[in-house]
Amino acid sequence: MARDRSQREDYATPLRRLLIGVLCLCLFAFFIVWRIDNPRVERFRAKVVDHVVPNMDWVMAPVTGSINLLRDFQSYQRLSEQNQELRSELRQMRAWKEAALQLEQENARLLDLNNVRLDPRLTYITGVVMADSGSPFRQSVLLNIGYRDGLQDGWAAMDGIGLVGRISGTGKTSARVILLTDPASAIPVIIQPSGQSALVSGDNTISPALNFLENADLVRPGDRVVTSGDGSVFPAGLLVGQVAQDRTGRLRVRLSADYERLEFLRVLRHHGTEVILDSGGLIVPDPGTPTPRERPEDLDTSSEDQPSNG
């Protein structure tokens, strides 16, 4: 009996070591493959997430809902204070609303005058936030829409007002949105009114940093930051936020989107910015038309110097 046992141990220990060695080797190989061929492994990850997270949705939604309810309940404690605040804000809002209405009318008039057609292809799909990244090191959320709904990597996700992030990784019924605050996020922007272009790169703080500014003197806190559409990843002109300066004097962006509660996100359909590839061909007349053209007979002398509309 005792011999049996020791023999078993003798076989078992090297086998276990072998198994652990092989497992670790596989895992390390997996990590290296992820590092080298990132898109394929990320697609695999998106598939796994797509299988797992939507199945948890039926219990996630009520839990999230009730926790949010509790949090709201806590805020009842300072209800009267809040009420006062809301009243004064409402008064300010009324004034702003007047101004906005006037501006809207003016804007409509000007658009009409200029015969502007706003981009008709910029439509959107709205998705519900299912889960967040779950780790303090990454900032992303999962939406409940995926490639079944036509989502593609790189599209912009907004809440009602400002840019929130970019789609990165789509499953059949889920898609990951990398938030602007994620360290891996970098978005080309333009700062109005000075027209300086810069890069908004996240660094795990609530207000991402402004990098690669050409001339920081032209930029003031409070300037509007909108996407520039450079690199044809994003449609141009989406509102990102306002310039702000932190304590060390570094320029950052105060995001317009409400990051405290991301619930519904709209994903803008974007089919790439059109690029002019050639330098323009030579414009030649149709074959068969004689050059120089014959002079029309019925022209009188007054319209001689006008170009003929042939």
Partner: peptide
């Protein structure tokens, strides 16, 4: 534990 982590409660960076 994973489930608790994934709940979309904290979308602000901490």
């Amino acid at each position: 534990i994973l489930f608790a982590h994934l709940l979309p409660l904290d979308t602000l960076p901490r």
